[in-house]
Design a protein around this nucleic acid. Structure first.
Length: 810
DNA sequence: AGCACGCCGACT
DNA sequence: GTCGGCGTGCTC
């Protein structure tokens, strides 16, 4: 019997299924989906691997090694997930095991630990024959009857596993190294720790390893991280002191049951909702896999519709996955589902401890839970007999993973829906241009809710021209109009939400007279001004030109704008000293519980104004909010990304939709320096269809998605020259390879250029962007080029990765 | 990424 | 004549 395996810790270059023979004694235990340990490489070091498939050929003729042990009693992955593994490798340019990792809960992981013990045959206790350190090791290991792990050696004697003394003892057979898989314990305490991802200071190797693990798992309890990484709690505290991590106290996550009381489920469906729900149900019942797009204006009650659909799918005995963007996975959201479906709901999110995650995963795998609610990675939930995947706010960028494996949850959902002949329902008030295009061209089923639920009316929206408007008491970021509206609202006892835009680092050039923004002649993307070299640069194609001061269209004077969001907040506080102001953003709310508390306080009327970044724009539902103000729409509009129009429209539509969800009519004010911009008017009018028509023309003309696929090749390294050289070399390699070997593949190669945040955490980043048509031939070509590149000795210090349809072009 | 194989310099 | 430097290539 033979087994094909995905090995852990391979690099992309030599990753592929490896074939091992299965010893007779393990033949019943080795099944697809279980993990095993195998000897690998010249040194036969033990590695964990996932069994992808088994076969009954004699391995004669091949020099195969044998599987050493089996780690799981039951398969962790079923045929569907096993089929998804190579699919992801080919599309996401990751290793097979990278795909495995994202499918199984972190806590179920084994890690391999080295254990050292004395050779039983060792007799030569001659102090003189050894160095001091070697002698220390001998003494310690002789005393410990079960030997010591590498971490224990380091802890007790300060001896690193790589120390030459230890290595020579191993070499001459005095000390024996064993390699065993040890299960990660999952016992929870209440002190949680999470990483500060963009931390860039110096860390010791131990701190670094703890930090890396932390970045990979998200949030864990302090004790678990300590166990997981073999690092003491003290080191984790140091990590927090250095600002690389945050430790916070958390009431243990309660299953949402307890909060059911104050949840009002959407009551009866309106006629419109009912019709849409019925149509979707009919499609769900078809035996064909399908994707549906549910478009519904803000406040139209999409949730009520998909709850209805879910209920139906459950009654026919099928399982359901509901994904929500990170920002809207609040206990409130969860409570809605628990209230509706009780114990059959399992929750997947980063606030769970490793143990809880594993428990929830098992509940799903065994079929005890039939619905999964969670963020991006919940699309991998081992739901049995999957019938429906609902993606709420499908346009959200959090559905795209920006670290390996770089998958988009929507693509995974489509794979699963095809495999299971199930239904995928994408929901949004502002669908992604790609999805809406698919719906228009008949590839997705289209469903629309045009009316707000109940009596609620779409708010009135007013654009405030910051060029002409009087400013409030000399505060350059607050117009008279906004100040007046806020004060009146406070006086009327109502609440306001103000949106600050955070992307301050991006500076663009805009003409004072005609309001034209300096854009790239090749890409029609606004260029970023770099003070360092006084040039305007396009981060798509690398085009760059000296910064000019006169507008190319009308000769007017250019101003350079952007930034200043901190100032905006200060001005607000000065402008409304009497108001009770709540600030909500990712910095001030490190964890979901703090956020929840704040939102509850706001809902209870303890504040007049809530100010915040994107977070305040999405998904919140407060009856008493009747005014929404956007301090400046401009940064988002002119961010250097082909999706900036879409993002702006989405953001503004969503935030405007926060106003007037209760009995009172809502109102929104959007401040801008470019009131002529068509996208602002479309957002103000909440006119998605017209927005789409405008945007799709731009996408078609410029060959952006959905008319082409984008692939980014990123390069990261310590030395800027080398990184740039690597990017340029790869770029040349690409051009040459495609000209020679694939002359028929459509491809537009844009020049290598520095990333817009070219220096992050002391590393330099460059990237190449390609517009192409996705195909197996193309992906294979890229994969082989990545292989060629990574074996180039000149660029050993540079890591290259491919990112399909990157969210932001950073 | 490891690890061995292999082919050149400075040591007993 | 041997120990050991790290360049090159493979990993079932």
């Amino acid at each position: 019997m033979l087994a094909q395996l995905a090995l852990e810790n391979t690099t992309y270059r030599f990753d592929k299924p490896f074939t091992y023979s299965v010893p007779q004694a393990l033949e019943t235990a080795v099944r697809p989906g279980v993990r095993v340990t195998v000897p690998f490489g010249a040194g036969n070091r033990t590695r964990v691997a996932m069994v992808l498939s088994t076969s009954y050929e004699s391995g004669a003729g091949q020099k195969l090694k044998a599987i050493a042990s089996v780690l799981d009693k039951e398969p962790l992955l079923d045929d569907e997930m096993l089929a998804l593994i190579p699919w992801m490798k080919s599309r996401c340019f990751c290793t097979l095991y990278d795909a495995v990792k994202v499918m199984i809960p972190a806590g179920i992981g084994y890690k391999l630990v080295n254990r050292y013990r004395m050779n039983a045959a060792f007799k030569n206790y001659d102090r003189e024959a050894f160095t001091d350190t070697a002698w220390q090791i001998i003494v310690a290991l002789t005393a410990a009857k079960n030997g010591l792990t590498g971490a224990e050696l380091t802890e007790r004697l300060g001896i690193e596993e790589k120390s030459s003394d230890l290595l020579s003892l191993l070499e001459n057979g005095t000390v024996i190294r064993e390699n065993a898989a040890s299960r990660n314990a999952a016992d929870a305490t209440t002190r949680m720790v999470c990483a500060v991802p963009d931390f860039s200071g110096k860390l010791t190797p131990k701190q670094q390893s703890a930090f890396d693990t932390l970045c990979a798992i998200g949030t864990v309890t302090v004790r678990e991280l300590s166990y997981y990484t073999g690092v003491s709690v003290g080191i984790i505290r140091t990590l927090a002191d250095k600002g690389a991590a945050e430790i916070f106290e958390v009431e243990r996550f309660r299953r949402p049951k307890q909060e059911m009381a104050d949840i009002r489920l959407p009551q009866t469906l309106s006629a419109e909702q009912m019709n849409v729900a019925k149509d979707i149900l009919r499609e769900c019942d078809a035996a064909e896999p399908m994707v549906g797009l549910l478009y519904g204006v803000t406040g139209s009650g999409k949730t009520a519709v998909f709850l209805h659909v879910i209920r139906h799918v459950l009654t026919v005995g099928k399982g359901v996955i509901v994904t929500v963007p990170e920002i809207s996975l609040t206990p409130q959201t969860l409570a809605v589902f628990t209230a509706a479906f009780g114990d059959t709901v399992a929750v997947f999110h980063s606030g769970l401890s490793v143990g809880e995650r594993m428990d929830e995963w098992k509940r799903v795998r065994t079929g005890r839970a039939k619905i999964v609610v969670g963020t991006r990675s919940a699309v991998f939930a081992p739901v049995q007999n999957l019938g429906l995947i609902v993606m709420d706010e499908e346009q959200e960028s959090t559905y795209k993973s920006e670290s390996t494996p770089r998958y988009h949850a929507r693509d995974i959902a489509k794979f699963r829906v095809n495999y299971n002949r199930a239904y995928c329902l994408l929901c949004s008030a502002t669908p992604s241009v790609e999805s809406y295009y698919m719906a228009q061209s008949g590839k997705y089923r289209y469903h629309a809710l045009h009316h707000r639920y109940g009596d609620a009316v779409v708010p009135t929206v007013q654009l405030v021209d910051m060029n002409n408007e009087d400013l409030y008491r000399g505060k350059p970021m607050i117009s008279m109009a906004l100040a007046r509206a806020v004060s009146e609202n406070i006086r009327a006892g109502r609440q306001s939400i103000l949106l600050l835009n955070r992307r301050g680092y991006h500076t663009y050039a805009v003409c004072k007279d005609c309001k034209t923004v300096a854009a790239c002649p090749n890409c029609s993307i606004s260029m970023t001004y770099h003070a360092a070299n006084n040039r305007l640069m396009c981060h798509y194609c690398g085009h760059s030109e000296p910064a000019y001061v006169r507008c190319k269209a009308c000769g007017g004077e250019l101003t350079f704008s952007g930034g200043g969001t901190q100032k905006a907040e200060d001005q607000l506080r000065e402008a409304f000293p009497e108001a009770r102001i709540l600030r909500v953003d990712t910095d001030t709310t490190a964890n979901k519980y703090a956020l929840e508390k704040k939102l509850n306080a706001f809902a209870n009327g303890e504040y007049d104004i809530m100010i915040g970044t994107q977070m305040v724009a999405k998904g919140l539902d407060f009856e008493n909010v009747t005014l929404v103000g956007v301090l400046s729409a401009d940064q988002s509009l002119y961010s250097d990304d082909y999706r900036s129009n879409e993002r702006t429209f989405d953001l503004l539509t969503q935030v405007v939709g926060r106003a007037g969800r209760g009995r009172y009519r809502g109102m929104a004010l959007i401040q801008t320096h470019v009131p002529e911009n068509p996208y602002l008017h479309l957002a103000a009018a909440q006119d998605y269809e017209s927005f789409f028509e405008t945007e799709i023309r731009f996408r078609r003309a410029m060959l952006y998605p959905p008319f082409a696929d984008l692939l980014q090749i990123g390069f990261v390294g310590e030395k800027e020259d080398t990184v740039r050289a690597a990017a340029e070399h790869f770029s040349a390699l690409l051009a040459e390879t495609f000209r020679r070997d694939y002359p028929n593949l459509p491809l537009r190669l844009l020049r290598a250029s520095a990333a817009s945040v070219s220096r992050m955490g002391g590393k330099y980043r460059y990237k190449i962007i390609m517009k192409y048509k996705n195909s197996k031939a193309f992906r294979d070509a890229i994969a082989s080029l990545l292989g060629v590149f990574s074996s180039d000795k000149r660029f050993l210090s540079v890591t290259a990765y491919a990112d399909p349809n990157p969210d932001a072009i950073l």
